[in-house]
């Protein structure tokens, strides 16, 4: 197998590309629609071995500040593919080498191969995950989203739909395919704690059900069942509970395997406001 096919380059044509990672994990990406190509230019440009090397280097050098999700530093989302101070790979390598003087980003004497590994991972960290992912037809997925899958009864996309569940307009930019697949198959297990539904009982007995947006020691911020932003003082609540079970059913209850692959393909097209 030619090296450049180790990771699936998103094309306008290919229906199936199967790849075997050097780690022995199969990655199956089924390609179905031209729109999927948006923002995917980097996948396939980088060698799998470099990406895996980059994963290790990222863990040892970058993770403390940027976190596994790549978005722990304010104003910096490594998974976005857009960097404030570098656009080309060469510029990105230079930035990794020199750091940003006067900031927490230190210089580092990376070798050329390490820089290649890190850039390979940074450029693909949004798109790859070392687990099996199947993508279907995003057009069919779009129909399933509003129809049989009933996603649109709770989720909002591009200004349409309710706000009670997280807005998915840019979910394809901020989650990997594998993470989204896990969310579809196991909503409770993969629900981010911050998104947990909460129930708050005010001193007058009024119950506010909503989704948690933020919480600190003294207060909690929610979007309530009437889509109002509410900030509640915990000391004024009679009761407050966060549910660990997601209100979203597993996709397998509503959709078959092929339909889930279609839905996943659709979700990955959601890139937010370009």
């Amino acid at each position: 197998m030619p090296k450049h096919t180790q990771f699936a380059r998103i094309t306008h044509t290919g229906p199936v590309i199967s790849v075997l990672l050097t780690g022995g994990i199969a990655l199956l990406i089924l390609i179905g629609n031209p729109s999927r190509a948006v923002g995917q230019d980097h996948v396939g440009q980088y060698e799998q071995a470099d990406i895996e090397f980059g994963v290790r280097l990222y863990g040892a050098n970058c993770l403390r500040c940027h976190a596994e999700t790549g978005d722990a530093v304010a104003g910096v989302d490594l998974r976005s593919g857009a960097y404030n101070r570098a656009s080309s790979d060469r510029e990105l390598m230079e930035l990794l080498r020199t750091g940003i003087p006067g900031t927490a980003m230190p210089p580092n004497n990376f070798s050329d191969s390490e820089l290649t590994g890190l850039v390979s991972y940074l450029r693909t960290m949004r798109d790859i995950d070392l687990s099996a992912v199947a993508l279907g037809d995003n057009t069919r997925g779009s129909v399933l989203f509003t129809g049989k899958g009933a996603c649109a009864t709770c989720h909002r996309v591009n200004g349409l739909g309710p706000r009670t569940a997280p807005d998915l307009s840019d979910i394809g930019s901020i989650r990997t395919a594998a993470t989204l697949q896990r969310s579809l198959l196991d909503p409770t297990g993969s629900m981010l704690p911050i998104n947990r539904p909460v129930s708050a009982t005010l001193s007058d007995g009024t119950v506010i059900n909503g989704r948690r947006l933020n919480e600190d020691t003294y207060t909690i911020q929610v979007i309530d069942q009437d889509e109002r932003l509410r900030s509640l003082d915990k000391s004024e609540l009679r009761e407050l509970s966060a549910l660990t079970e997601s209100p979203m059913p597993p996709a397998t209850e509503l959709l078959d395997t092929e339909e889930i692959a279609d839905l996943l393909a659709y979700l990955l097209t959601l890139k937010g406001l370009e």
Binding site: C65, T176, T179, N214
Partner: peptide, 16 residues
């Protein structure tokens, strides 16, 4: 993957 744990920094929203 996908979930954060406390690190050296945090933003305005407590994501963990």
């Amino acid at each position: 993957a996908g979930a954060n744990v406390p690190g050296l920094r945090r933003g305005h929203v407590n994501t963990w």
